[in-house]
């Protein structure tokens, strides 16, 4: 038992070994030790969603997991999801619809939205609003974000069934 913990994990498909301060939360680990600055710190108490990332196939708040807990984990951040092209349709739609302004919420928003589209190919506007209800955006009125997720869903899964 120690204040410092050895972890081995994969981040964006690359193996990582690190020794981390036990108190270091996952998003600080990614940002400070791995220079993956695409995940953002917005509140550090689990409300804003700016640090939303994917761990072991599920979306989590990066500020509500400790790096020490990630031994053996598979972590994907905006950087990796961009490189694999997995969320390209969403990114394309966010740009086309101007679903971002300052961009600080955007990586977390994209990771959360990608999970929705993985589960539900054609969510309604209301469903998109509810799903993203834990991701704070101060710049847009959310409307364009909902538009963009709808557009990405259509691009990925075809026109809605009438």
């Amino acid at each position: 038992m120690d204040r410092f913990v050895a972890i081995r994990l994969t981040v964006n498909g690359e193996p990582v070994e690190a020794r981390v301060d036990a108190r270091l939360h996952l998003v600080d680990f990614l940002r400070e030790q791995l220079d993956l600055t695409g995940s953002h710190v917005g509140c550090e108490h689990g409300v804003c969603g700016a640090c939303t990332i994917r761990v072991n196939g599920e979306i989590v708040r990066g500020c509500l997991m400790l790096a020490a807990q990630c031994d053996g984990a598979e972590v994907w951040t905006i950087e990796g999801l961009t490189e694999t092209g997995e969320i390209a349709a969403l990114q394309e739609a966010f740009v086309a619809r101007n679903a971002l302004q300052c961009g600080f919420c955007t990586p977390g928003m994209l990771v959360a939205a990608a999970e929705l589209l993985r589960r539900e190919p054609r969510p309604s506007r209301e469903r998109i609003r509810d799903w993203l209800g834990g991701n704070y955006c101060r710049c847009t009125g959310y409307h364009a974000i909902v538009d963009a997720v709808e557009q990405a869903a259509a691009a990925l899964h075809g026109a809605p069934a009438e």
Partner: peptide
């Protein structure tokens, strides 16, 4: 950890030891 870690981050909880049972 979805309640405990916010409390840690805000220094509202300051345990000496965290026992992870996950």
């Amino acid at each position: 950890g979805q309640s405990l870690i916010p409390a840690l981050n805000l220094r509202l909880a300051t345990p000496a030891v965290l026992v992870d049972i996950n």
